[in-house]
Amino acid sequence: METGNERVGGAVTVGLLAAWAVHDAEELATVPGWLRRNVPQLRSRLPAVPEAVWRRAGSVDRRRFAAAVGVMGTVVAAASAAGHLSGGRSAFYQSAVDGFGLHGLVHLAQAAAFRSYTPGSVTSSVVVVPYALWARGRLRRAGVLRPARPRDLATGLAFAGVAMAASHVIARRLLFERVQ
Rank of each mutant, 00 (worst) to 15 (best):
R63Q: 12
P130F: 08
S167A: 15
R115Y: 02
P32S: 07
V127C: 13
Y131W: 08
V129I: 09
Q94S: 10
L133Q: 03
L139K: 03
A78G: 14
L108G: 07
A77T: 01
L174Y: 12
V144K: 06
R45D: 12
V53G: 08
M164E: 13
R64K: 03
V60E: 15
E27A: 05
A57T: 02
H84V: 00
F176G: 14
V127A: 14
L175S: 10
A68K: 00
A79I: 02
A160P: 02
R7I: 05
G83W: 06
Q110H: 06
A109V: 08
H168E: 15
A67P: 00
Q110A: 11
R43V: 04
V8K: 03
R146I: 00
T74D: 10
V53T: 13
L153E: 14
A165N: 12
L105F: 06
Q110I: 01
Q41S: 12
H168C: 10
G73Q: 06
L16Q: 07
R89L: 13
F100L: 09
R146M: 07
V128Y: 07
G83E: 09
G137E: 13
L157G: 06
S44Y: 07
R149V: 03
E6S: 14
A78Y: 02
D98G: 13
L105T: 02
A163T: 12
R63P: 01
G88R: 06
V106G: 09
R172L: 12
